[in-house]
């Protein structure tokens, strides 16, 4: 197996909650990411799924080092980004990892033309001589399927799908090894969503990019990903190949999640038994003791309330965090 491009070891990102203006009191901690261990091979597409508030986006920001890590190690291409990185170290590392955000209306600067947006990273990192910036911008636009004649246009002149293409081109400008896409298609219509999914998988194949694809739509994740990680309250509860996890889910949470997605097939949809979870996802401020899923789990037992299940190997390339696996 090739050495991983990204290795996370027991990463925790906690946010303190304090009350009071002058005399700040520490009243609690949001454990947004709570002990995630994960590795990503070069060229691999990892899907990250979970409900809102489960820590998917915080994990992405932690990898990018946009939020301080509480503990654990984020190792990108052999360099530990968490241990005493100076700004300069991070700056160099960020060339190799880039991010695409959910809302292409908010993630592009409305006062910058496409050219400015795409040229900025090239200038900041001085990756190409000033006279060839224009040529490189043209190349980037063609790469994501935008006509270079739109170079001097502003974001408001583009549709949602085109804006997401600009955001992807901007992420590709520095030829990163890793792209983190945080819900890149959630804000788009189905026909546009298909274009962006095709583009992302083509780019990954062509440029041998690693991609962390965050989404809540499991059918989209299954389509694009090699492996899938399911998160619940800051922890990974199941990890495996996309087909395995989504077609043969093991963890009770993954099972419920998979059964909750409506499939566009009337026969299947009308006959199948849906596992409807009770209640809302609990708050990450006071997560339940023991297995954090136990209050909503249909198979929970007394032991689930006390023991925190570890992520254990369950088959080839498959890891599941459930102590009662195989008992139901």
């Amino acid at each position: 197996m090739p050495s991983p491009i990204l290795q996370l070891t027991d990463v925790r990102t906690h946010f303190p909650i304090s009350h009071g203006l002058i005399f700040k009191r520490h009243v609690g901690t949001v454990k947004a990411v709570d002990g995630v261990t994960l590795s990503l091979a070069p060229g691999e597409v990892l899907g990250l799924v979970g409900e809102s508030g489960c820590g998917k986006s915080t994990l992405a920001r932690t990898i990018m080092q946009l939020v301080p890590t509480t503990s654990g190690a984020v190792v990108l291409e052999g360099k530990n980004l968490t241990a005493k990185s100076t700004r300069e170290d991070l700056r160099r590392a960020r060339r190799h990892m880039q991010m695409v955000f959910q809302d292409p209306y908010a993630s592009l600067n409305p006062r910058m033309t496409v050219f400015d947006t795409l040229a900025e990273p090239l200038r900041v990192h001085a990756v190409c001589p000033p006279e060839s910036v224009s040529a490189r911008v043209t190349e980037l636009m063609q790469l994501v399927g935008l006509a270079p004649r739109f170079m001097q246009k502003y974001p408001h002149e583009f549709s949602g799908g085109q804006r997401q293409r600009i955001a992807i081109a901007r992420a590709l400008a520095l030829e990163p090894r890793l792209i983190i896409a945080d819900e890149p298609v959630s804000a788009l219509d189905v026909s546009i969503q298909a274009q962006i999914l095709n583009l992302l998988s083509q780019l990954c194949r062509k440029m041998h990019l690693s991609l962390i694809f965050i989404a809540h739509d499991l059918s989209v994740v299954k389509h694009i990903s090699d492996r899938v990680a399911v998160m619940y309250l800051g922890k990974i509860v199941e990890l495996g190949t996309a087909i395995d996890v989504i077609e043969r889910p093991s963890h009770p949470y993954t099972r419920a999640l998979v059964s909750a997605i409506p499939t566009p097939n009337p026969e299947v949809e009308r006959t199948r038994q849906r596992i409807v979870l009770l209640g809302d996802p609990p708050s990450p401020i006071n997560p339940p003791a023991g297995c954090s899923f136990h209050p909503r789990c249909p198979h929970a037992q007394e032991t689930c309330r006390t023991a925190i299940p570890a992520l254990r190997t369950a088959g080839v390339g498959r890891e599941v965090a459930c102590d009662r696996l195989g008992e139901f």
Binding site: V190, S191, Q193, A194, Q195, L197, N198, S201, S219, V220, K222, H223, I224, A242, I243, I261, T263, P264, N265
Partner: peptide
């Protein structure tokens, strides 16, 4: 164009 109805990894119709 919806992934749920297409084989995994195939080019989606746009």
């Amino acid at each position: 164009s919806i992934p749920a109805l297409q084989p995994k990894g195939s080019e989606l119709y746009t």
